[in-house]
Amino acid sequence: MNLIEKRIWDYLDGTDTAEQRELTGQLIKSDPLYRQVYNECNSFNSLVSAIDQEEPSMGFSRNVMERINLEPAHASFKSLIDRRIIFGIAGFFLFTITALLVVLFYQIDWTQTTGFKTPEFTMPAIDTAKYLNSTFINTFFFVDIIIGLYLLDGFLRKKLKSK
């Protein structure tokens, strides 16, 4: 490619410097050779820009959407999980671990000089029969069924909307 052509292309694409641009602009006006190359490049640009884009087959969108429908729907973690919930869970675990460590260190007998004596820990007796009675179990299942119906309703509404 000769220098004139390169300069003209840079001028047309706007990739030259301001000085070069001004100089090339003047040359196009004054030099017939520059003007000829400029006209040729311009015609080339209009010819190639006018090409139509190809059209894919009629079933193109349908085929892609069939494959897309097999993919799991996008749902960003941001919308699924609230940050406060994450911080709440982290806080709960941090508090539990810290409390356990405090109790553990508090129960260690630091005056002992020989060996390591594990602190005694006895689990308080819990009477499960007191809490797990039939009323509790019935209430538990009732709440479960309500939540299940609520989720099913949401799922069916979403499905109807997407159709």
């Binding site: 059209e55 969108s61 996008h74």
Partner: peptide, 18 residues
Amino acid sequence: VLGGDKAAYADLMKLHQR
């Protein structure tokens, strides 16, 4: 689409498929 609306992807595709 990122909010879970798959149908919106068909519109997005139509804009660029050609």
